[in-house]
Computed example of a mutant assay.
Amino acid sequence: MKNRLKRVLIISMCLLMVSLLAGCGETKKDETGEASKSERTITDLAGKTVTLPAVAEIKNVVIIAPPLLSTYVSNGLSTDNIVGVSAIALTEMNKVLLDYFVPNNKEINTTFVSSAYESNAEELLKLDPDIILVYGDTQKKGLETIQVPVVDFFIKNQVNEDWSVQIDQLMREIFGLEDDNSLQQEWDIANKKVDTILAEVGSIKKQKGLMIMSNTGDKITVRGAGTYGDDWLVKSGLVNAAAELSGENIEVTMEQLLAWNPDIVYVFRGLPAAQYLSGSIAGQDWSQIQAFKDGKIYNTPVGIMNWGTPCADSPLMIQWLVSKNFPEKLSDNEYQTILKEFYERRYEIKLSDEMIQSILIPGSGK
């Protein structure tokens, strides 16, 4: 009898130990609300500590900041997990390549967020998100009290290389990816090419460049000093014609543009370059501007994202700008080889002539 009781006690203790060990492996919060061991904390780019689920538990992803979609898909993450995005994230992706990068693009909800990037929290929560990716306080408006991790990718320093690399690194941390094949490696390749060319033209008087933020026909806005557009111009060997202004979206007049008289103009959003060059924009006469006279008004290319904003294609943008600024140093044919090799290396896409045309001359594709 005593031996039997002893055996029962031993078995009971073993079962208790198994139960305790199983409890240690739970992935959900317990009844007291304490975080499970599978949860982890990260520091987002705004400097806030955010508690995230285990990587395997992130099933439903919402992306509000458009460039972040390019970084997400560039890392081979499945778009089946994306339940909501800003519509701009899709409209600013290359139309010829959209189905390749985001095959389920027509099924992803875009109605919960406005064109000003403000979310309807009630509609967003219906998507049952496990994580929400944003850029800055505007995109977090209305999401302050929801019980879903919100990761902010905002940085104060508007430097294209810095931000495109940092969002790549943070995206890898969030989704548990290795550090190999990071975007910084591509920037290193691009910088070497650009630095060599700029060193060769160092003694030449710098041309004046202008980055149009948007042109609706009624209103022209430009990208002044300290902006991503300014960084593109300066890093590609130009002087920003709008450097006397500060800010990302500054309205200007034709009189001001004539006074600046830029040698090269890059169009980020709004009316396409062809309308500038054909003189078909009512109320705007570009014919006296040097860039018009030389035919140097260009749309920013559109690949995995519109290249006017930092994105997963950004190492290509800086080289493309240099090819336009100094075509005698980097020809169109040489640049297209760079583009093809990048897309095959990064995305395993062999670009056809049609695809290349659709990237470098937006609107030329389907």
Rank of each mutant, 00 (worst) to 15 (best):
193 K>N: 09
122 E>Y: 07
162 D>T: 13
300 T>H: 10
250 I>N: 06
73 V>S: 12
188 D>P: 00
48 K>A: 11
363 G>W: 01
95 K>H: 12
297 I>C: 06
362 P>H: 00
12 S>M: 12
55 V>G: 03
153 F>A: 07
239 V>T: 13
169 Q>A: 04
18 V>K: 15
338 I>T: 04
360 L>W: 08
338 I>H: 03
292 F>V: 02
7 R>I: 14
278 S>K: 12
70 S>I: 08
29 K>C: 00
139 Q>N: 06
238 L>T: 05
220 I>C: 11
267 V>I: 09
181 N>K: 01
214 S>C: 13
325 N>C: 06
292 F>I: 00
12 S>A: 15
340 K>H: 00
200 E>K: 02
142 G>E: 14
71 T>D: 13
332 D>G: 08
314 S>D: 00
315 P>G: 02
52 L>G: 03
206 K>A: 04
228 Y>H: 10
126 K>A: 14
31 E>W: 07
337 T>I: 03
12 S>W: 14
199 A>T: 06
236 S>Q: 05
53 P>M: 04
115 S>L: 12
18 V>Y: 13
331 S>H: 05
112 F>Q: 12
77 L>P: 12
202 G>Y: 11
275 Q>E: 05
108 I>A: 14
288 Q>F: 08
118 E>K: 04
75 N>T: 03
313 D>R: 02
120 N>P: 09
